[in-house]
Design a protein around this nucleic acid. Structure first.
Lengths: 193, 193
DNA sequence: TGTTAATCTTGACACTGTCAAGTTTGTTGT
DNA sequence: ACAACAAACTTGACAGTGTCAAGATTAACA
């Protein structure tokens, strides 16, 4: 750092301060100039690392997605000695909890149509979206433990149903204008019918 | 209209052009000045009707929510002679279809944390959120038709599960970066287990 | 008909994203 | 060691933004 002309690691600093600002002040109030100032560089410095604001947001989004994925894996790991059903519920709870702990991340991750996640490279299909992979793995383990046999099609339908339920509950829990009468945790207990 | 100093119905014109712009160019590119220009009025004119940009967006949001609700009711009405289960599926399909037809509305309706819907006045609780009321009505009819008896708690849990599943599927269907292998309609067929 | 309040305009301000041009520094080839 | 080059960063400018204050126009009403 210090007072060098070259920052040293501006790219990562921009991402980190960007995440902090989004979480503290909301996405709306994140500006390139503000992030630059937070990193102690001039207002145009970010353009050496990102084509435009969109590209910085995309990088921030990828970074948040990584943290989200780690968060899910950690929660599942904590109950790794118990049943797959417990693990799925644990994952669902963490899924929602993550966004309640970081209220601005939900909108940021899922609802910037102009931003596409680039975890590695290219578009993300369900098949290589890490949270989905985790759920898939757990669900297959669940089917094994229960001795349930399903066709591939039935499996996918069930998977999408579970995933979308969790996603939907997170969505509802994050909506400030819609309140459920029961705490959201209650809706996750019977995630698998 | 004409060349009068007083527009006549500027408030509604701002809302209508606002909706059009959001749907044509996306929410990001909606500015107060642009809407004002579209209405043929000076850049500060909107301030006679809305405190700030947020308040205009809030009015637009309420207007879109109304259209959304109407859209759902219409689709349910089209199958009013069939079973409640069919109606629920029809509603689910329309729920998703509405946002696929108006790609910018999804983010706009659900993910502007700073905007709260004011359909009549005050916050919206699940209890008086019209789409939820519709689903509730259909679900109770479904239970009657099937002769299923549930406790109030069980009823609510099932309702939230159905609602969040539909919401989640809409969410997934609207995500450009996540693609399912099957068309989203397939995941709605077995909405009720 | 005169007063008042609502509606709209004009002008200004700070802030935004972006670009062009110039400056500093690390790297690389000889 | 040194020149050449490319990457990283600065400075300055531009159009567009939300918002406010002050003034102009008009409708409504006493």
């Amino acid at each position: 750092m210090e007072d060098k002309y070259h920052h040293g690691n501006l790219r990562q600093a921009l991402i980190d301060h960007g995440i902090r600002i989004i979480n503290e002040e909301g996405e709306q109030s994140l500006s390139l100039r503000k992030v630059a100032a937070a990193c102690g560089v001039s207002h145009s410095a970010p353009y050496a690392h990102f084509k435009d604001k969109e590209e910085l947001l995309s990088a921030i989004k990828a970074s948040v997605t990584e943290r989200f994925t780690e968060y899910l894996y950690r929660s599942v790991d904590e109950v790794k000695d118990e049943s797959a059903e417990k693990a799925i519920v644990a994952m669902g709870r963490s899924y929602v909890k993550f966004f309640l702990e970081h209220p601005d991340y939900y909108q940021f991750l899922f609802y910037n149509q102009k931003i596409t996640v680039h975890l590695t490279a290219g578009e993300i299909h369900e098949e290589d979206y890490p949270p989905y992979l985790l759920l898939k793995e757990l669900f297959f383990r669940y089917l094994g433990e229960k001795g349930i046999a399903l066709s591939d099609e039935e499996k996918e339908i069930e998977l999408i149903k579970i995933w979308s339920t969790v996603q939907g509950i997170a969505s509802i829990a994050c909506m400030e204008n819609v309140k459920t009468t029961k705490p959201w945790e209650d809706y996750l207990d019977k995630l698998i019918h």
